[in-house]
Amino acid sequence: MGRFPVLAGADLDVEAGDVVLLSGPNGAGKTSLLRLCAGLLPLRSGAAEVLGCDLARDRRSLRRRLSFVGHETFCYDDLTVAENLRFAARAVGRGVAEADFAIARVGLGSQANVVHSRLSQGQRRRLAFAIALARDPELLLLDEPHAGLDADGRAVVDEVVRVAAADGRTILIASHELDRVRQLATREVEIVGGQVRLPVAPDPEPVEVSP
């Protein structure tokens, strides 16, 4: 399998506490940028620092300080909601209490003892969010966070992002739901063909969106 560049000449500075919307067409490189920031893709050339960690050398300590909600849940089918959450939380030194609080926060309290394979798509997304929260991250990377969620789930995601932003966490959100995410974001950048375009100012007028 050949290698090809997915991000070329991408240049992006994000301040601590920023909520950044990454917009752009399918295949532009939004997911790749998030995976790069999470240390899941190797940096082939250039330089990048995330939370002060050099992406080329220090990915493990970086990963302990961030959470990534991607297209997949990163969960085990044969573990329950609570077991998946506790495993992820304990891996970064968090306790059962944080895990259980995160379950309640995303509205999965009644499913705590249900195995992952029996959850609906929307419940799985909620679990992914709960895991992200239970890790108490400094940086939250969200890839299409509203995809596959019902109205309640989408509202939960919005609330989670608002609370995380109010707590001073830095958040990068790749999304096609621009109107919705613009209400949450402090900045917007467009990614086209693997390159970061000039910052787009967020719409000053809040737009009403249906839940």
Partner: peptide, 12 residues
Amino acid sequence: ANGARDGLRLSG
């Protein structure tokens, strides 16, 4: 399944 390998890497 479910990208658990990436989850293991992300676990720190």
